[in-house]
């Protein structure tokens, strides 16, 4: 077979070279040559071409191995999601099965959390999470979208250069510092007007959360607004609409899906926020929130408050709280993925 590689114009010299090479590299030629039969050009020096061939096989194997490594790395994300879901769900559902099971209904509808007495009710936490998220969206989305409009449509370039970095820094501030701000500024301010004795309240949570979701809302809305074709604006202005009318009747409706994605992402951030909320929520062990002045205990803070020392049933119940939180997040994620897919199809 090896005759095939080095074509008919082989000279004696070449023959010699091959023999030499074979002597140096016993066994190499026979295996290598099969794969590369005929791949080398007429008249080329066999010594050189054979060396290339030898490398090629290695290279091919290398390519395959590396691709497999790349694939493995890409699968780490999938494995992580699967592991998180499995571990959290398995541990979080354990208290509700078996001989000594806690009633799932009591868990989901109870309004008292007293691990010392074996009472675990999280309905008031679910309410707190939903109320604080809804409040944050109600304040954060309009302010955020209007700011995005300002950046994308109204502001002169000089001001954009101030506002945009400000929003990027706002996005980078750790949530613990938002908590410090809440504790040092928002809570004392609420203290002055609240009918309750403490400033930690649903209102404080809503205010801080709406600030925390602002960067998300602004930057996503802004890119959605910027993606609206210029022709839309020109057409609208051309038929006599004012700038404001153009923005609200043409541009924003066209950017609807982007703004919606921003809102959903904001919901996700607000419902999952832990540390900032923990410092300003009050975290009572029982009781539905009655007004914006009452203390609340969202799902996330329940976990973070007790996880460090919880064990046994209490720890499982914290995981169960995590499962409920996870289900909310899943709904948010699915909505978001659907929305972005729709936008992509467009």
């Amino acid at each position: 077979m090896e005759n095939g590689i080095v074509s008919s114009s082989r000279t004696d010299d070449n023959k010699l070279n091959i023999e030499k090479w074979k002597a140096k590299n016993p066994g190499k030629l026979d295996t290598d040559s099969n794969d590369y039969e005929g791949s080398c050009q007429e008249g080329s020096e066999p010594g050189i071409s054979l060396q290339y061939m030898r490398r090629n096989v290695k290279r091919d194997i290398m390519e395959k191995v590396v691709e497999a490594i790349f694939l493995l790395c890409a699968l780490v994300g999938v494995v992580s999601v699967a592991a998180i879901i499995v571990f959290v769900f398995v541990k979080g559902t354990r208290p509700f099965v078996g001989a000594d099971a806690y009633s799932l209904r009591d868990f989901l509808t109870g309004t008292v959390w007293a691990p010392g007495n074996g009472v675990y009710g999280i309905f008031y936490m679910i309410t707190a999470s939903i109320l604080s998220t809804a409040g944050a969206i109600l304040i954060g989305v309009p302010v955020g979208v209007l700011t995005a409009v300002f950046i994308a449509e109204v502001a002169p370039e000089g001001i954009v250069k101030i506002v945009k970095p400000a929003i990027e820094i706002l996005a980078g501030i750790p949530s613990v510092l938002y908590g410090a701000f809440g504790l040092g500024v928002v809570v004392p301010m609420i203290m002055k007007v609240t009918p309750q004795v403490q400033g930690q309240s649903l209102l404080a949570v809503i205010i801080v959360l709406s600030i925390m979701i602002l960067p998300t809302i602004v930057s996503l809305s802004e890119s959605a607004i910027r993606a609206v074709p210029k022709a839309y604006r020109e057409a609208s202005l051309g038929i006599g609409a004012s700038k404001v009318q153009t923005i609200f009747k043409v541009v924003l409706p066209a950017a609807k899906s982007g703004v919606l994605s921003a809102t959903v992402l904001g919901i996700g951030r607000a419902i999952g926020e832990t540390m900032a909320v923990m410092m300003i929520a009050g975290n009572p062990t029982a009781g539905m929130p009655e007004s914006i002045w009452s203390m609340v205990r969202p799902l996330t803070t329940n976990i973070a408050m007790e996880m460090s020392y919880a064990s046994g049933r209490q720890s499982e119940m914290l995981f169960a709280t995590g499962v409920v939180l996870f289900l909310f997040i899943m709904m948010v994620n699915m909505t978001l993925i659907k929305l972005t897919q729709k936008a992509g199809e467009k």
Binding site: A74, L75, G77, V78, S80, V81, A82, A83, I84, F87, V88, L265, G268, R269, I271, G272, E273, T274, T300, I303, A304, M307, L318, F319, G322, L325, F326, I329, M330, V332, N333, L336, I337, T340
Partner: peptide, 19 residues
């Protein structure tokens, strides 16, 4: 893979902490 990554991005850090 993309679906998993999108989901990972949306999970709040307290859930990561639990895990």
């Amino acid at each position: 893979i993309h679906f998993a990554i999108q989901n990972l991005a949306g999970i709040p850090s307290i859930i990561y902490g639990l895990f």
